[in-house]
Every structure is written in C-alpha cells, then in structure tokens.
Amino acid sequence: MPKLKTNSGAKKRFTFTGTGKIKRHHAYHSHILTKKTKKQKRNLDHQTIVDRCNLKQVRDLLNLR
C-alpha cells in the first residue's frame, strides 16, 4: 500500500503544542478589518486549540492516526 500524502493546506495551517495538541489560528482576521473593533481584532490575533468535535477531521488531514 502506498504512503498517504498529508493535505498540504492543512500542514500550513496547523501546528502542535509540546503536549501533542493541535493549534490553529482564528478565522475572520484577514480582510474587511475596518468594521471590526480593536478588541475583536486583538482577540482574533491569538492561537487556540482545535476543538474536540473537529479533532478527527484535522487528524485525518494530517494523516495522524
């Protein structure tokens, strides 16, 4: 059986913590920023952990089993 390829879009978007959790960036922080408040933009700037309900999909994209 051939090796599985990692989704190239996913490997650019997700990183790992030291304990093996998967980090992601917040959405809605790339354009149309003029109508968003400073507080909203500041809070979107941080990274967060991938939610439990989406973890299986992300792990499949990264070929982690």
Rank of each mutant, 00 (worst) to 15 (best):
R59G: 04
C53K: 08
K35E: 13
I32F: 15
N54D: 14
G20D: 06
L62M: 12
P2F: 04
L44P: 00
H46A: 00
T37M: 08
F16S: 02
F16T: 03
L4M: 07
T6Y: 10
Q57H: 10
K39Y: 01
T6S: 01
K23S: 06
K41N: 07
K12R: 13
S30N: 07
H26R: 13
T17D: 07
L55Q: 08
R13S: 14
K12C: 04
A27D: 03
C53E: 10
D45H: 14
I32L: 10
L44Y: 11
N54H: 15
R24W: 04
R65C: 03
H25M: 03
K23Y: 03
K41Y: 05
L62V: 10
K21W: 05
H46S: 01
I32C: 10
R42Y: 08
G18D: 10
K36M: 13
R52K: 14
K21V: 02
Y28F: 15
I32G: 07
K21I: 00
Q57D: 11
T34Y: 12
V50C: 11
T15C: 03
H31N: 11
I49P: 02
L55W: 04
I32M: 13
K5C: 00
D60S: 11
L64C: 11
T15L: 06
K23Q: 12
L44C: 02
R65G: 12
